[in-house]
């Protein structure tokens, strides 16, 4: 049976727990992607990040993406965990894992999943800068006018 699992968590996590769940003797390849909280963006020093999700739709859309990956690529399993809440520099914001018979499909599916998650799943990121300012990524530039609170 092909498992299918997209999760949101407000807790800090390490990927190895989820990797164990994917162990499968038919798999010759496991690939993963981890997104980490970086200390800078677009020339500004970032102190921390906040992720907010619309949980109902985020889980549905995330599961749809994993199902698409199983459909499109010859993989055995795929998982994705995304953090919510306030994250510090260096924490894992998102983890994607894929297993397959061979590495090429595992790599391709992993790339597909993270790209689709970033562009489709209703999760938003607010950067808190070292200078005390903050801003919603991808929203501040397109906003016609921003009122600072």
């Amino acid at each position: 049976m092909k498992a299918n699992l997209f999760q949101l968590t407000s807790q800090s996590f390490q990927a190895h727990h989820f990797v164990r769940e994917m162990e499968n003797h038919a798999a010759g390849a496991y690939t993963s992607f981890e997104g980490w909280v970086r200390n800078h963006n677009e020339g500004k020093d970032v102190a921390s990040l906040e992720y907010e999700a619309y949980p109902d739709l985020a889980l549905k859309e995330g599961c749809r993406i994993l199902a698409e990956a199983l459909e499109k690529f010859d993989i055995i399993d795929s998982r994705c965990i995304h953090r919510t809440g306030h994250l510090q520099i260096g924490e894992i914001a998102v983890w994607v894992g894929t297993t397959a018979k061979h590495r090429e499909e595992a790599f391709t599916a992993c790339r597909y999943i993270i790209d689709e998650v970033k562009s489709r799943v209703p999760i938003w990121k607010k950067e808190h800068y070292a200078d005390g300012d903050s801003g919603w990524v991808k929203c501040e530039h397109c906003a016609s006018h921003i009122h600072r609170h």
């Binding site: 997104g35 992720y51 914001a93 998102v94 489709r120 799943v121 999760i123 938003w124 991808k138 397109c142």
Partner: peptide
């Protein structure tokens, strides 16, 4: 109804 601003996960 939920209006969805540009998403920025990952």
């Amino acid at each position: 109804v939920v209006y969805i601003p540009p998403v920025a996960g990952g």
